Computed example of a mutant assay.
Amino acid sequence: MLERQASRSARRAREFEAFVAGAAGRLLHAATLLTAEAPDDNPRARHLLTLALAHTYAHWDRLRGEDPYDRARRHLVDRFARASWHRYGGFGRARPHPAGTLARLTPQERLVLVLRLYEGVAEEPTAALLGLSADRVRAVCDRATATLLHPPRGPAAAGPAAAAP
């Protein structure tokens, strides 16, 4: 009995280690995009990844054919959404130290953009995961993409033509 349990635990640990070896890098990158931190300085993203992997490991035996990557990603997204809601009082724009390219987006825009474009999740599953309608997901994704492709212009610099009398 104890040998069987030890064997099962060892197999579980090997399976999870193989999963982490294959998925942790991509999940960390997704978390870094969500938090808009710099890739080399991403403590919030690493914390989100640790929580997602711990949750996945705790439920490893209950996956029953469910994709462990999908489970970890769902938990990562859920933790980010809840943390953003509590930290900023909703999906507002306030960020203490924007660093990454996606920093000018709201947390909701980052969530939708990362799920749709980086992770390749379709509109319907994204909408279900975030509790939004598919139309709302499409609108948020379009707005976020437009914001990134056409950043707001800064004040016009005085050129040589403006300086001439």
Rank of each mutant, 00 (worst) to 15 (best):
N42P: 03
R73K: 12
L49Y: 00
R64C: 04
P39Y: 10
H55M: 04
A52I: 00
L53P: 00
L53S: 08
R87T: 12
D70A: 14
L113E: 03
A45S: 00
L115S: 04
A31C: 00
D70S: 10
E37P: 09
R82L: 12
H97F: 15
R74V: 05
A103H: 11
V112T: 01
N42V: 05
R44D: 12
P68V: 06
S84Y: 01
L53R: 00
A31Y: 02
Y88E: 01
D67T: 09
G100Q: 07
A99F: 03
A94S: 10
V112Q: 04
R79F: 00
Q108H: 07
Y69E: 12
L34D: 01
A72L: 04
A99K: 15
L63D: 01
R73M: 11
L117C: 09
R82Y: 12
W85E: 02
L49A: 00
A81T: 14
H47E: 11
P39A: 07
R79K: 09
R104P: 09
T56P: 06
D41Q: 15
W85L: 13
H97L: 14
W60Y: 08
A94G: 08
L34Q: 03
L49V: 04
T101A: 14
A99M: 11
Y69D: 10
R116Q: 08
A30H: 10
W85F: 14
R62H: 12
T101Y: 14
F80A: 02
P98S: 08
R74T: 14
Y57I: 00
T50I: 01
L111R: 01
A36K: 13
R82S: 11
F91L: 02
E37I: 08
G89T: 05
D78N: 10
